Simulated scan of single mutants.
Amino acid sequence: MIDLRDAERGPAARADFLHRLRRAVHDIGFFQLVGHRVTGAAELLELSRKFFALPDEERRALDILDSPHFRGYSELGRERTRGIPDQRQQLDIGPERPSSAPGPGEPAYRWLVGPNQWPAGLPALRPAVVDWMDRLTGLSHRLLRLILESLEAPADFLDAVVDPDPQVHFKLLHYPGPDPSADPGPADQGAGVHKDLGLLTLLVQDRVGGLQVAVEDDRFVDVPVVPDAFVVNLGELLEVATRGYLRATVHRVVRPAPGVDRYSMPFFYSPRLEAAMRPLPTRYVSEAGGVVADPDNPLFACYGENVMKGLTRAFPELIARHHPGLLAAADR
Rank of each mutant, 00 (worst) to 15 (best):
A301V: 11
A229N: 01
I319M: 15
P85Y: 00
R14K: 11
R126T: 06
F157I: 07
S140E: 06
A7M: 02
E79S: 12
P324R: 12
L203R: 07
Y109E: 09
P107K: 03
P295V: 11
A191T: 15
R20N: 14
G210K: 03
Y263E: 08
S100W: 01
D183L: 13
N233D: 10
R97N: 04
G35F: 05
V240E: 06
S48G: 12
A301F: 02
L199P: 05
H322I: 12
P107V: 14
G259S: 02
V291T: 09
G72Y: 11
D188W: 00
A153T: 04
V231L: 12
E43H: 07
D261G: 01
D296E: 07
I84K: 10
L211M: 14
K171S: 06
L151I: 12
G310V: 03
E274W: 08
G83F: 08
Q212L: 01
G289K: 12
L21Q: 06
G72W: 10
A275I: 13
M308F: 13
D179R: 06
F268K: 00
H141K: 09
S181F: 05
L151E: 10
D294P: 00
V162T: 15
H141N: 04
G210W: 02
Q87S: 14
A329Q: 13
Y109F: 15
R78T: 15
P316G: 03
G177H: 05
A108P: 00
L91V: 07
D159F: 08
G72P: 09
D156I: 12
P295E: 09
R313F: 03
V193R: 14
E236F: 00
V193K: 09
